[in-house]
């Protein structure tokens, strides 16, 4: 309280205190700053620093007798791997609409959730899916093939 009452003051009148009270303002400001910085820490916490799912890059051993046009699905993965005369390729089986897992069928793939259909090379033929199923990067490596789910390649690329 820094100002002196010049004359009899009543409690209805505003006190000009806040403008002059440097100490009080500095105290409140530093508290606000501390809260502000701690907010950063708290907001940072819920975003995990590292993904809890397995690596998106893995090797698969294709069965020797995989008929042309038949999908091989590595256990636990949402990928269909094919082999034909030109080579090996992998198509993601995650629907581009809202992420359900598509099922291979005679014409290509179909999605059980909202009825999207895809041709054998992943192009949309039906339903709400906005984009074709992406082709994933396949490379020769180790004892078989290495699939990288995080890298897509142009439709039609075979190894």
């Amino acid at each position: 309280m820094t100002t002196k009452p010049t004359e009899k003051r009543s409690r209805f009148e505003p006190e000009p205190m806040p403008r002059r009270d440097f100490l009080g303002l500095a105290a409140l400001a530093s508290m606000a700053a501390a809260f502000f910085v701690s907010m950063f820490g708290m907001l940072k916490l819920p975003k995990a620093a590292v993904s809890a799912s397995p690596s998106k890059k893995y090797s698969v051993a294709l069965p020797d007798a995989l008929p042309e046009g038949e999908a091989f699905v590595p256990p636990g993965r949402s990928v269909a791997v094919f082999r034909d005369g030109e080579g090996v390729f992998a198509i993601s089986t995650v629907c581009t609409h809202l992420g359900c897992i598509v099922k291979p069928n005679a014409n290509g793939f179909e999605c059980p959730c909202h009825g999207s259909g895809f041709s054998k090379d992943g192009a949309v033929t039906k339903g709400p899916a906005p984009k074709p199923l992406p082709w994933l990067k396949v490379s020769k490596g180790g004892s078989g093939f290495v699939i990288d789910e995080e890298a897509t390649v142009k439709t039609g690329t075979k190894v």
């Binding site: 820490g41 940072k44 916490l45 975003k47 995990a48 620093a49």
Partner: peptide
């Protein structure tokens, strides 16, 4: 070990 600010909290 890995949660951001986790150890501190």
């Amino acid at each position: 070990f890995i949660v951001p600010t986790g150890r501190f909290m």
